[in-house]
Design a protein around this nucleic acid. Sequence first.
DNA 1: AATGTACTCAACCGCGACGCG
DNA 2: TCGCGTCGCGGTTGAGTACAT
Length: 279
Amino acid sequence: MGRQPCCDKLGVKKGPWTTEEDTKLINFILTNGQCCWRAVPKLAGLRRCGKSCRLRWTNYLRPDLKRGLLSDAEEKMVIDLHARLGNRWSKIAARLPGRTDNEIKNHWNTHIKKKLLKMGIDPVTHEPLIKEENPTDQPIQESDQNKNNDHQQVVVVTAGATSSELDNSSTSSSSASSSENSCNESKLVLDTFKENDPLLSCLLEADDAPPLIDSSWELPVKSFDNNNNNNMTSSWDDESFNWLFDCQDFGIHDFGFDNCFNDVELEVFNTIYDMENKK
DNA sequence: AATGTACTCAACCGCGACGCG
DNA sequence: TCGCGTCGCGGTTGAGTACAT
């Protein structure tokens, strides 16, 4: 007996989303918030599987998403977190505000992996790829890694920081190989690294804080006037409006938001829209 | 200009985790 | 405790695009 499909396959559309579908989904989430994803397609009038709706929203339509390539600081952060957490992209993404697990995963596979390999670093173990010095293919002990000047910074930072700083339950291969003895020594190097990288430092200092992306993400629906959905007092600021442009060159009218925002917000929106068009 | 190849990234699939009755 | 339904995650795919020949 096979597993039940996540949704009724019959009549469920697959493939790229159209602007119209995006509009429907956005309108629905904005007016109802994120509820039972399984029910979303039906309620929003979409011929999509709930899973697909959730993915589309979290990976593409969410207003707090950053677009474009990861910055150098973000890349460093991803490498460091990957060394600690392994392929737990959602955990990594949670520490990078505005970035999705899918985006980070893709970036890792297409950019970072190659970069690390070019630098002679195994992207899986974060250890040097020097066969001559390690002919038995045995994992390199951390004390040995520290002697390798060529890769010292990255290797020490990535491997050394694996020890329960972030996540005690980490099961990545690199985490499993880290030893308690070298923890303090590596921590010192990590601190040095953090000093040289303000963003990394900032993010690492917030280890005990809840995931940034979750706490900061607030749906405008909270500000809806229940008596009149058209009279929304949105919590979105100008930056959020900008997202609508940065996202995929949509305009507010494409989403049919004309009725969702009040006059002031529409005016702000139109001003931004005009500015964007003049660029 | 036409064709082949490499690359990117949105989207899908299947599985495990979790919550609830 | 067990079974079921749902959600979220990570791996993978494939369409679209860029670049090379």
